[in-house]
Amino acid sequence: MNGPLFTLPLGEWVASFVRWMTSTFKPVFDFIKTILEGIYDLIAAVLGEPPFVAVALVLVILAFLVKGWKLALGTAIGFLVIEGVGQWGNAMDTLALVILASFIALLIGIPLGIWAARNDSVSAVVRPVLDFMQTMPAFVYLIPTVVIFLTGAVPGLVATIVFALAPGVRFTELGIRQVDKEVVEAGHAFGSHPRRILREIQLPLALPTIMAGVNQVIMLSLSMVVIAGMVGAGGLGRDVVAALSRVNVGLGFEAGLAVVILAMYLDRITAALSDRSPVARALRTTVA
């Protein structure tokens, strides 16, 4: 049997790089871990400590406010199902993870997208990095994060942020680049400062697209958060992983269904929010 023509010890390099990072930046990582854990615990407590009825009611009212009674009714039924199968506590842990991961992913992604939209070189660098991040199998991110952050919610969070970052950047860049060139020119032509053009013209007009990106970020976060159950991130993911390892069809279905209900809720809420943006509303109003 022939050996390979040559060997590229890429894996070793990456491994030693991660080892070097872990030891060199240990204080930094410890700090990040403490912060993230603190915020996560806080959100999880807010969502998980009050009784089911209180939290569910708030979420149902939210659904009613942003969309209407149909979504509110659907939400109520869905949440009753989650409570009924005993997954409410896990669902709230997962929701806390999703909220935090999405928030941080957007905090990084949207400014990066704006920068990429305004600068072609940035765009040229960012694009392949995003391709890499999106296509690398999601599990792989878990390995270095576990090395760096050990187990618990934080490695799952960090892996989720990396995995969910891409659509936030892409949709923001796309949305801003899609804004009618003439309207941006009009901003310049009347002497507006580029920063104001961004704030008053580009971002509002790009908002429907950016919101689609926000929706994608949340959906990706949710799917990754379940995978993160493998490294002890808690929530629904833990039960899904447990069901998998014990071949427990019932538990798997119940936890899986709770994920689906949560996903639909988050999707409809964000979609309704983007529909309510001034530009989306204005574009729906046309000459009768």
Partner: peptide, 19 residues
Amino acid sequence: DIRQQRVSMVFQHFALLPH
């Protein structure tokens, strides 16, 4: 400053802010 005070423009496709 010149654009604010001295030259304005009308565009082919109107370039209004839709919102």
